[in-house]
Amino acid sequence: MSSIIPGRAVVTGASSGIGAVYADRLATRGHALLIVARRGDRLDALAARLRAQYGADVTTLVADLETSAGLAEVEAAVGNGQLSILVNNAGAGGLGSLAAVSADALERTIKLNIVALTRLSHAALARFREQGAGTLVNIASVMALAPSPSGAVYSGSKAYVLNFTRSLAFEYADTAVRVQAVMPGPIRTEFFTSQGLSDSIFPDSSFISADQLVDAALAGLDAGETVTIPSLENLATWDTIETARKAFMAEIGSGAVASRYRVG
């Protein structure tokens, strides 16, 4: 990302937390911005600050990606004109036992975390193919690898984001289109409090700030990473997971039923 592809950078969920920091950092890198969120007052405040602080070219779009109309509006904006980077940051937690969460709430989480991210990725990649270059960043979560009794839909949706994004990275590996999955652990944002939960679900020592996350994610992008896990110190741990995954895929192609399932 040392050179700027002509066009806007689009950041969803930009009114606070990770999205707001991405908008700030991309503005410092010289990108024009389209920032998207539901809370217009916060978007306007962020846009005013970025213009005053960096002289940034910032446009705001108030939209709810959980609704068909809101998603269609953002999808059209992503597909209209030159696009340098899309950061699919908007997401919902939907935390709690499945029995304690309404089916409608679960569907809203799926619409935001999976449907909106997929459609916006599709629109962005269409633009990138026409342009010959571009960058797609999808915010997944370490919960993609952590099935949870209090986060079945959240964990499942982030597993989708991880596999979806990695698959796209393989598809576009031989092109000038960059694809990155970012996997945050616990971050000091409004993520928990917005759902009526306490940050104490994790120990204090396990949190990093949104600023630290985004700076690490951009460093990973600059380094050419497809998957960036900002709080993972020992990269060999990820390599072990990848080695086991490849061994698993090789072994299941044996063409034979495992001995433990054979009768007689």
Score class of each variant (00 low, 15 high):
residue 185 G to K: 01
residue 137 V to E: 03
residue 93 G to M: 01
residue 8 R to A: 13
residue 43 L to A: 02
residue 169 A to P: 02
residue 21 V to K: 00
residue 166 R to T: 05
residue 207 F to L: 08
residue 166 R to E: 11
residue 170 F to T: 14
residue 142 V to I: 12
residue 215 D to P: 06
residue 83 L to T: 08
residue 124 A to S: 09
residue 254 S to R: 03
residue 104 D to I: 13
residue 260 R to T: 12
residue 125 L to Q: 08
residue 211 D to M: 13
residue 175 T to F: 01
residue 76 A to I: 12
residue 3 S to M: 12
residue 156 G to V: 09
residue 27 A to Q: 04
residue 108 R to G: 13
residue 77 A to M: 05
residue 215 D to N: 03
residue 249 M to N: 14
residue 157 S to T: 12
residue 37 A to P: 00
residue 260 R to V: 06
residue 26 L to T: 02
residue 120 L to H: 09
residue 199 D to S: 06
residue 63 A to N: 12
residue 36 V to K: 03
residue 70 G to C: 05
residue 258 A to I: 15
residue 193 T to H: 06
residue 85 I to T: 09
residue 240 T to L: 10
residue 33 L to N: 10
residue 257 V to H: 02
residue 94 G to L: 15
residue 191 F to Y: 06
residue 24 D to M: 07
residue 72 A to L: 09
residue 207 F to Y: 14
residue 69 A to C: 01
residue 226 T to G: 08
residue 4 I to Y: 07
residue 2 S to F: 06
residue 90 A to D: 02
residue 159 A to Y: 03
residue 160 Y to H: 12
residue 47 A to R: 01
residue 217 A to Y: 03
residue 257 V to R: 08
residue 188 R to P: 03
residue 46 L to N: 01
residue 14 A to C: 09
residue 29 R to Q: 05
residue 87 V to C: 04
residue 205 S to W: 11
residue 251 E to L: 14
residue 98 L to K: 05
residue 37 A to W: 10
residue 28 T to H: 03
residue 85 I to S: 08
residue 65 L to M: 03
residue 256 A to L: 15
residue 229 I to L: 12
residue 92 A to L: 15
residue 99 A to H: 11
residue 134 G to S: 00
residue 127 R to Q: 08
residue 131 Q to G: 15
residue 66 E to C: 14
residue 249 M to D: 15
residue 165 T to A: 10
residue 67 T to G: 00
residue 5 I to G: 08
residue 19 G to F: 07
residue 260 R to M: 11
residue 137 V to N: 06
residue 226 T to K: 02
residue 233 E to A: 15
residue 190 E to M: 00
residue 177 V to L: 10
residue 251 E to Q: 14
residue 125 L to Y: 01
residue 101 V to P: 05
residue 87 V to R: 02
residue 197 L to C: 10
residue 186 P to I: 07
residue 122 H to K: 11
residue 138 N to D: 15
residue 128 F to G: 02
residue 213 L to T: 13
residue 257 V to Q: 04
residue 41 D to C: 12
residue 56 A to L: 10
residue 56 A to P: 01
residue 49 R to I: 00
residue 78 V to D: 07
residue 144 A to R: 00
residue 252 I to H: 00
residue 10 V to K: 00
residue 32 A to G: 08
residue 119 R to E: 00
residue 235 L to M: 14
residue 237 T to S: 13
residue 48 A to M: 04
residue 159 A to Q: 15
residue 72 A to N: 09
residue 136 L to W: 05
residue 247 A to D: 01
